[in-house]
Design a protein around this nucleic acid. Structure first.
Lengths: 112, 112
DNA sequence: GATGCATATACATGTTTATGCATATTGATT
DNA sequence: AATCAATATGCATAAACATGTATATGCATC
């Protein structure tokens, strides 16, 4: 299906692109200016983001306007839901259930 | 500060480890059995997860018990907040978490 | 203190990946 | 059609990374 979300977002430059796009649709050259790597690099990052479903493109003359698409972000949110009880445990009953399932040889104390 | 969250989670095996730990504290050998790579590999992944702050360790005799730590997950949640408006009309985060939990019993299909 | 079990690390290797440079493509303008 | 502007892609390179094998460390029990 799609490329792995986390692998796509693992690259800081790519996250920079995503961040820039969170402020609205942008054309490639604008991103080049904001991000500071070579144009070919930005294009390739956009290609990856597009193939991964993080962004959409539309042509406007010779320009290409990129914008964020929600689906993959929602997917990450779903993944995160499994772990949300780690810090929201006291608030919902799922967290309580998960807490109860923790096998503890004694009391779990967190330290380092 | 810490290593990059997304870079840490980019590796599918590492997410497998995290997933296993979401069901409770585990010792290294159990993870080796569940995950199916060599023990040295699991140890290295755990080292990375630990240094990144995703897990904690405590010694229990000769065993080392690893467990998830919430902070880095919360950090990802915060990052995601910037993009939640992409798909969220009205629901607040807690509501969304509950909703997501209710929808799917299985969520492990993430690594192809 | 010797032996055995659980976990960690050093080393070598094959693979992936981000990048710049050069070039190709596509669209606009004259 | 010629040229310029915006974007995409092939190639080469260097760095990062995951993995297995072998070995080391740490703990426990005899």
């Amino acid at each position: 299906m799609h490329i792995d979300s986390f692998q796509v977002l693992a690259d800081p430059t790519r996250r920079h692109v995503v961040d820039a796009l969170s402020r609205g649709e942008r054309q490639v050259n604008d991103l080049v200016a904001e991000i500071g790597i070579h144009q070919s690099g930005v294009s390739r990052h956009l290609r990856i983001l597009n193939e991964a479903g993080f962004v959409s493109v539309r042509a406007d003359g010779q320009r290409r306007l990129y914008a964020l698409k929600p689906d993959r972000f929602r997917e990450i949110d779903d993944w995160l839901a499994k772990y949300r009880s780690l810090w929201e445990a006291r608030l919902d009953r799922f967290g309580a259930a998960l807490e109860a399932r923790r096998q503890k040889p004694e009391q779990t104390k967190e330290k380092e």
